[in-house]
Design a protein around this nucleic acid. Structure first.
Length: 215
DNA sequence: CTCCCGATAT
DNA sequence: ATATCAGGAG
């Protein structure tokens, strides 16, 4: 079956199984989403939300983060891991927002990618969820599932992003990205994929290869 | 390629 | 003990 046809079938199943798939980070504005997504690198959304509940009461806007004491900010976000890099990036990001973007988060890929600690994954999360601009988000889940299902044989996230852009309708980019994450967390897990409870097994290369091993 | 890095599931 | 978690930079 053609990849586009398989994706269409998979999306029908995902629409049923994960009808309210959405960003699971807590945020009230684009700046909070940007910072939460920077914090989410190699960290669960659940942990990020615990940290940001206090963080966004202490730091209300880009000025507050830009003027923050670095060591204090490091301590405020410590449990998300990579806290020295993340604190430095968030401070510098907010300094740039004030200097070049009137304290606001830019709504285009080019400017977002110039911010420290912001790569294509983070930029596309912000564009899709804060500004409703379609973007394929290739995180660890999207990468793993794309490879297992057989939607892309590339390992470079940017190549996977472009592969998925070709086979997924543009209006579904953001939703499909969320659905990959939901399916990756609940069924197609990194360590122990639960193929016997997978509803897209017949459209998955890895699933088909595992068929005989499922009890 | 390596490094950054804490929390949690297995 | 080790792999993994909505990665990015040098």
């Amino acid at each position: 079956m053609e990849k586009k046809e398989r994706v269409k079938k998979i999306m029908q199943i995902f629409d049923n199984d994960y009808e309210d798939a959405k960003c699971t980070l807590d945020y009230k504005n684009p700046l909070q989403l940007l910072i939460s997504t920077q914090l989410a690198a190699q960290c669960t959304d659940e942990r990020v939300n615990i940290v940001t509940e206090k963080l966004y009461k202490k730091y209300k806007n880009a000025h507050d983060f830009a003027n923050a004491d670095l060591k204090e900010l490091e301590n405020d976000i410590r449990s998300t891991g990579f806290f020295r890099n993340k604190a430095k990036n968030i401070k510098e990001t907010c300094r740039i927002l004030i200097e070049k973007h009137n304290g606001e988060v830019p709504d285009n890929l080019e400017d977002l990618l110039k911010l420290p600690g912001v790569g294509r994954k983070t930029a596309n999360v912000v564009l899709g969820n804060a500004f409703a601009i379609p973007g394929i988000v290739v995180d660890t889940h999207a990468k793993r599932l794309s490879n297992r299902i057989g939607l892309s044989c590339n390992t470079d996230p940017e190549k996977i992003e472009f592969d998925l852009m070709k086979i997924v309708p543009k209006e579904s980019w953001t939703k499909f990205s969320h659905q990959l994450v939901f399916h990756g967390r609940s069924v197609c897990k990194a360590r122990k994929p639960d193929c016997k409870n997978c509803n897209i097994l017949e459209y998955c290369n890895f699933g088909q290869s595992q068929k005989e091993n499922i009890q």
